[in-house]
């Protein structure tokens, strides 16, 4: 029995033919309410190797060229059939609609920060043991983590230099020197050359931290659930 391999959600109908997917299977549109998914019927899961990863990315990129808004679906996502897909998308409909609106006409740059460490803005307060319940403590911990993820001298310099080009940002702190953080920036389509030249201008303000950018990418990091 074949299953549906999912590639992306589109913000509207594509301007050209969808072409073929990973296994050479013809791609088709599956409508789920107001969401449009691009899928292919495959007899089995693709092998997890470099060629499949590249083919998945190439397919998503090709789709992105044919439509204003695209949300890539994580590699190797399979569902049994169209009704199973509808059942899974339905609870996420509002969030997915908002995400599609955010990425419309935009693409992603990825910035990796390397070095010995980042300079945090200010010492973070200790955990707050006096908070009444586990829920409040959990939320306080999330706030601390978010502040720690976003607040460093280097990231502030990057935001000053790139700020005008950045529509939205996702940050992951790794703190596994030399890999310190990954920053995913949503920019307007076609702005990647300006992004790279702005980055070159501010590289000197980062001290011992090295910033390496890749892109443009389809907006992988701006899909709901991609980064908690």
């Amino acid at each position: 029995m074949s299953r549906l391999y999912l590639y992306a959600l589109l913000g509207g109908p594509p301007s050209g033919p969808l072409g073929a997917g990973l296994a050479g299977e013809p791609l088709r549109l599956v409508r789920c309410g107001d969401l449009l998914a691009v899928a292919g019927d495959v007899p089995k899961a693709p092998s997890i190797d470099a060629a499949s990863l590249r083919a998945h990315d190439a397919t998503v990129r090709r789709l992105a060229e044919m439509v204003e808004a695209v949300l890539p679906i994580r590699f190797c996502t399979l569902v049994d059939d169209e009704s199973a897909l509808a059942g899974l998308l339905e609870p996420q409909r509002a969030g997915l609609g908002e995400a599609l609106a955010l990425v419309a006409g935009r693409e992603q740059m990825t910035l990796r920060l390397y070095g010995e460490g980042l300079h945090d803005d200010a010492p973070l307060p200790d955990a707050e043991p006096s908070l009444p319940g586990p829920g409040a403590r959990y939320l306080a911990a999330r706030r601390r983590e978010r502040r720690r993820a976003h607040g460093s001298r280097e990231m502030a310099a990057l935001r000053r230099g790139l700020g005008a080009l950045i529509v939205d940002e996702r940050v992951e702190r790794h703190d596994m020197p030399p890999l310190l953080a990954s920053l995913y920036h949503l920019i307007e389509r076609g702005a990647s050359a300006r992004y790279l030249s702005a980055l070159e201008t501010i590289a000197g303000e980062l001290g011992a931290v090295r910033a390496r950018a890749t892109g443009p990418w389809p907006p992988y990091a701006f899909a709901p659930g991609a980064i908690p």
Binding site: A45, D49, L53, D57, C76, T77, A226
Partner: peptide, 30 residues
């Protein structure tokens, strides 16, 4: 095997394609 071919562009690809994207709960083969 995927990670051993460690060129930077492939690693970026692994991060984006494998680790990001819309997550449809419970159905990711990963």
């Amino acid at each position: 095997n995927v990670l051993d071919e460690a060129d930077a562009s492939l690693l970026d690809l692994v991060d984006h394609v494998l680790n990001k994207g819309v997550v449809i709960e419970g159905e990711v083969l990963l």
